[in-house]
Design a protein around this nucleic acid. Structure first.
Length: 345
DNA sequence: AAGGGGATCAACCGCTAGGTC
DNA sequence: CGACCTAGCGGTTGATCCCCT
């Protein structure tokens, strides 16, 4: 027995919204608000839609002051920074980007930004290979394949790990002090630190830390890693790795509370802990996060340039190569959704 | 010109949190 | 205190677009 459905599935329309439906919903909400009850709303206005569907349509598309596409470099950086800190909590990330919806950001991350980061990473790997070819090999990295067309699995299987100097820099930064007691309820005994955040990001991008299981036990008295061998296992998918990582750290990880599969971590910056920003007024950038995405914050990630602005990266399949045009502009500013065109008549 | 396949995005699904009775 | 209900969230899917061959 599952739970009762939120609406009569047989009598609700599914699929794309028509302009008429949009118009009905928009005008009603603008005049009367939602009435605090999305479930009842479609009946009130004669829409054969599920309340959830109405809510989603309003929040993601009809709501005033929404922006679609055209993500700026600054927005990219904000998304990356927050993703490093809190993971895929899109609603929180969206709250820091005026006019953006969680759905938008989620799609943007999954379809473009992630690839952009991997593209930067590939570029860095390529440069390292070139350096090695010049007899300047100070980094012990596994073989590099000849062509530059990498997939995520290629990265996992061929590269094996992220650049040594990146990890060196990240891991040399001392961890922040323990969190205040008020925050201990949301995570556990070791305290969040940026190393874990970075580890988490790398894992999300397909990697895994071989030293985790053996050397980073929660009871360990140190946060240091005794090796920089950030390994990837073969046949990895990001979700699988996340699950493995979570499972290994249930009740002990300093950065993951996996009881519900959702990260529950405060932000850490400059040795201070900040709680998450749920409920912040949209578009209002809270100072802590403003600080996080500032240049000071970026300096802490020296060596992670592949995460940040780099204009000559390439996305092979999209033919965006070596341009001074920002990536977001190149891909989305001229994009018009078909519905936009229809609406424009 | 056509069709195959990847990219993109809107919408849906299922789950959890939190409020109310 | 537990059952019920809704809002909200993140993951996933499917339709459509667009590029390449």
């Amino acid at each position: 027995m599952g739970r009762a459905p939120c609406c009569d599935k047989a009598n609700v329309k599914k699929g794309p919204w028509s302009p008429e439906e949009d118009s009905k919903l928009k005008s009603y909400i603008e005049q009367h608000g939602t009435g605090g009850n999305w479930i009842a709303l479609p009946q009130k206005i004669g829409l054969k839609r599920c309340g959830k569907s109405c809510r989603l349509r309003w929040l993601n598309y009809l709501r005033p002051n929404l922006k679609h596409g055209g993500f700026s470099e600054e927005e990219d950086n904000i998304i990356c920074s927050l993703y490093i800190s809190i993971g895929s909590r899109w609603s929180i990330i969206a709250a820091q980007l005026p006019g953006r919806t969680d759905n938008d950001i989620k799609n943007y991350w999954n379809t473009r930004l992630k690839k952009k980061l991997l593209g930067k990473h590939r570029k860095e790997q390529h440069q390292q290979q070139q350096a090695r070819n010049r007899g300047n090999n100070s980094v012990n990295i596994v073989k590099q394949e000849n062509n530059n067309q990498y997939s995520l699995s290629d990265l996992v299987q061929e590269q094996g790990y992220f650049p040594h100097h990146v990890m060196q820099n990240l891991l040399s930064t001392p961890p922040p002090p323990p969190p205040p007691p008020s925050m201990l309820s949301s995570y556990t005994n070791q305290g969040f630190n940026d190393q874990d955040s970075i580890r988490k990001l790398l894992i999300k991008l397909g990697g895994r830390f071989s030293d985790d299981y053996h050397h980073h036990h929660p009871n360990s008295s140190t946060n240091e890693f005794d090796g920089l061998n950030v390994q990837f296992s073969n046949n990895a998918t990001s979700s699988t790795h996340e699950q493995v990582y979570d499972q290994e750290h249930v009740g002990s990880s300093s950065c993951v509370n996996s009881s519900n599969g959702i990260n529950q971590v405060p932000f850490v910056q400059n040795g201070q802990y900040f709680d998450t920003v749920q409920g912040e007024e949209q578009g209002k950038f809270i100072p802590e996060i403003d600080h996080m995405v500032s240049s000071n914050f970026s300096q802490r990630f020296d060596g992670l340039e592949f995460l940040y602005g780099d204009e000559d990266m390439s996305i092979e399949n999209n033919k965006i190569e070596g341009s001074s045009t920002t990536w977001g502009e190149a891909t989305t500013s001229s994009y018009h959704h078909p519905l936009d065109l229809k609406y424009q008549g």
